[in-house]
Simulated scan of single mutants.
Amino acid sequence: MKKLDLYISKNFLKSFLLSLIAFINIFILSQLFKIIRYITAGRMSISESITYILYLLPKIFIEVTPLAILLGSLMCINRMASNLEIISLKTSGISFRRIVRFPIILSFLISLVVFQVMNKVHPSALTKSRALRAGRKVAERVLPSKKNNAFLRTEDNIVYYIKEVDRVKNAATLLEIIKVDKDFKAIEEIITAKSGNFNYEKNTWVLKDAVVNNLKNKTQKIEKEYIDASLDKAPGDFITIQGDPDELTNTEITQAIRDIRTTGGDVKESLAVLGKRYSFPFASFIVSFLGLSLGSRYVRGASAISIALSVGLGYSYYIVQASFEALSVNGILNPFISGWIPNIIFLCLGVYFMRKAEY
């Protein structure tokens, strides 16, 4: 790293950290009124309120980092432009893209930090903050013991519908099992039973008062006890962990989506959260192009214009991002595409102004 890169990087990081601290303080102050109300209502003690604020910090950090990057970029380059350093460097043959190279690299590294915080720290902190606000203990997520109207489709094209399944007693009532051909076009067999127990030694269901309709052979038989080795899905396979996807890590959300799909549930909300996890952290990297390029254009009234630009552009990004997120939750757009559309729009704007800043 050359002295020029070190000088610019130090200025950028200083501006970013100052902006980050300022925005975090603003967001904490906005929460103080709620916290004071919780304390006066007896829902929290003073020590619990401090812990609650600490649990909120990962969420606040994630939300304000793009704004802090934008304002920090504007302030850093604006200061250099007002001191005629940008003009001097350009006159000496150094391009603007060369000047801002290391701040852009640092912004990308900060985006990676946001990604890790959003994936590993934020879910746990959010769970604890919600529990503290609700006045309950944080419990580990466990599988429910029972589930009504359980649905499951296996890789072998066997479709289960069970009125009630109990994973503790390994029992089920009112089962309907449909076997479909490998192309999933024709039904081969329908099995109904009043009840059933799962035998873990044989790894199969033992059905009671079963009616087996073979549609291929056009036969029907009634069995007091019926065993089919292909019916090997245990009661626990029909039950998934219930929880807010915001409180899960990326790996847990991916697993939850698989479980929900196999049990016939709606995965739109989980997909929207996962799509945002892989797109929003990189907003910090993308808005740095806007901040660095626009910072060289406004020299007089630097502080006021920098703040106005960062707030205006930052909240414009949030509005666009929230709009496309709503489309993904409603199933209109693919969550990963809708998550990256705002990034692509603002990246194009950033590259456009970056080209303009060369002259």
Rank of each mutant, 00 (worst) to 15 (best):
I86H: 14
F102P: 02
S338G: 07
E225S: 10
I39K: 00
L13T: 03
N334V: 06
A171R: 05
I177M: 13
K128T: 04
N334K: 05
S9Q: 02
Q255T: 13
R37A: 12
I28A: 12
K137D: 13
G93V: 05
A150W: 08
V64C: 06
N119G: 00
Q242C: 06
K268V: 07
I260V: 10
E252V: 01
P342F: 02
L13G: 02
I24K: 05
V64P: 05
I227G: 02
S124C: 00
E252D: 02
H122Q: 08
D232A: 11
I77S: 11
G196L: 09
G42A: 07
L349P: 04
N343R: 03
A322P: 08
L347I: 04
L309Y: 12
I62N: 02
I177G: 09
L70G: 11
S338R: 03
D166Y: 09
R130N: 15
T173D: 15
Q220F: 13
M80F: 13
D209T: 09
S284L: 05
Y298D: 03
S47G: 15
Y315Q: 10
F102M: 14
I253G: 04
Q220L: 08
I62C: 01
R101H: 06
K59Y: 00
R258Q: 15
T127S: 13
L327C: 00
N213K: 12
G301L: 07
I21M: 11
A322W: 08
I21N: 03
G265I: 04
D228K: 03
L132P: 03
V351A: 07
